[in-house]
């Protein structure tokens, strides 16, 4: 058996949007997803990107990675159980 490949079904494009719209975009998408689903979030706002780790801890989701290329940041979030993990 090869590695398990999961297609990225959920994407939100928040390029050009200022804080707090990318977070609101992530919230809206995550509300429609089920636990374990993966969300790809594209953003250009630095403040939102820096907020994402804390935001994910507070909302009970998991920030898998966050990378930047050519000025666009891509964050990958796995939907969690919704329980705040900042304890």
């Amino acid at each position: 058996m090869g590695p398990r490949v999961q297609a990225l079904l959920w994407r939100v494009d928040c390029r050009g949007m200022p804080m707090p719209y990318p977070l609101l975009g992530a919230r809206a998408a995550l509300a429609r997803m089920t636990q374990g689903d993966i969300l790809g979030l594209l953003l250009t706002d630095r403040e939102s990107e820096l907020s994402l780790a804390a935001w994910c801890r507070m909302t009970g989701n998991l920030l898998l990675c966050s990378t930047e290329r050519l000025g666009v940041r891509c964050a990958v979030i796995k939907k969690g159980d919704g329980r705040c993990s900042n304890r």
């Binding site: 804080m19 707090p20 977070l23 609101l24 992530a26 919230r27 907020s51 935001w55 507070m58 909302t59």
Partner: peptide, 9 residues
């Protein structure tokens, strides 16, 4: 900003 961010969470 704080209130709207809180809403996003």
């Amino acid at each position: 900003i704080l209130a709207s961010t809180a809403i996003s969470m």
